Simulated scan of single mutants.
Amino acid sequence: MKKILPIALLVLSVVFTACSSDDNNNKDPESSFSATINGKEWKPTKINMVTLIKVPGSGQRFDINVQDDSILLALACESESTTNDAMPLKQYNFFEDPTDTQVSNALFLNTYLYANGNSLTEHFPVSGKITITSMDASKKTVSGTFSFRNEKSQDEGAKIKVTTTPTPTVVEVTNGVFTNLSYTVIKAQQ
């Protein structure tokens, strides 16, 4: 199970450059996604992907990837395998320093997008939670809430300058809500 989330970073970075809103058309007029990012209301212009990836014998991972012209948000959570094509309805958490009593089973990324085609992911999760409040396996729709805090890497040697536009030290995402998003089930081979 712990192997799924680290692999998510690689998969998510490949997927957000390859997917478009045409891949996952949320035609339901009742579907929506919104959040507050550093105190400002935010809504994506594209829903790149909403997927449930099932890996036999290893568990399953749920991903949401949305963007506007300047920022991309990627949310992921994992659980044990279920017999239906849905995640258990519960809260999933990211802890920077998990203890034996706390299990990190969620991941949150924010990536800055620039008009010249460059992108920058320099903030890393500190804390966060995603709660799946409803998931209809027959209609393939999902609803829930989320919030997270990401902080800029302090490793100056790891930074690659792609823009002169400064980014904040902390990205605080609150009031995150997604409603009736259509999702796709991917059954991976082991």
Rank of each mutant, 00 (worst) to 15 (best):
S119Q: 10
S119V: 06
N105Y: 07
Q91G: 09
S104K: 12
N84W: 02
S79R: 01
I71R: 10
C77Q: 05
P98M: 07
N110D: 09
L109E: 00
A106W: 00
E78T: 02
F62P: 00
K90N: 08
A74C: 11
L113G: 08
P88K: 07
L89G: 06
N105Q: 10
A106C: 09
G57A: 09
D68P: 08
Y92C: 03
I64A: 03
S81H: 03
D63V: 11
S58C: 06
L73G: 02
T82I: 05
L89M: 13
D85C: 04
Q102K: 14
E78D: 09
D85A: 10
T99H: 07
S70Q: 14
Q91E: 15
D85T: 05
L113P: 07
L109A: 02
A106I: 01
S70K: 15
A106V: 02
S104N: 12
Q102V: 04
Y112W: 13
A74Q: 07
T99Q: 10
N105T: 10
N118M: 11
S119M: 09
K90T: 15
A106N: 02
R61M: 15
S58I: 05
E96D: 12
K90P: 05
S70G: 11
D97Q: 10
L113R: 14
F95G: 03
T82A: 06
L107R: 00
L113I: 15
L73N: 03
D100I: 04
F95T: 04
E80K: 15
I64S: 02
G117R: 06
L89A: 09
S119G: 05
F108K: 02
D68T: 11
T99G: 12
S119Y: 15
G117P: 05
E78I: 00
Y114G: 09
M87P: 03
L107P: 00
D68A: 09
L109V: 01
S58L: 14
D63A: 10
A106L: 05
C77R: 01
L107A: 06
D100R: 05
Y114V: 10
A76G: 15
L75D: 01
D63L: 12
R61L: 14
D68H: 09
D100Q: 10
G59K: 03
Y112P: 00
D63E: 13
Y114H: 12
K90I: 07
A76N: 11
N84L: 08
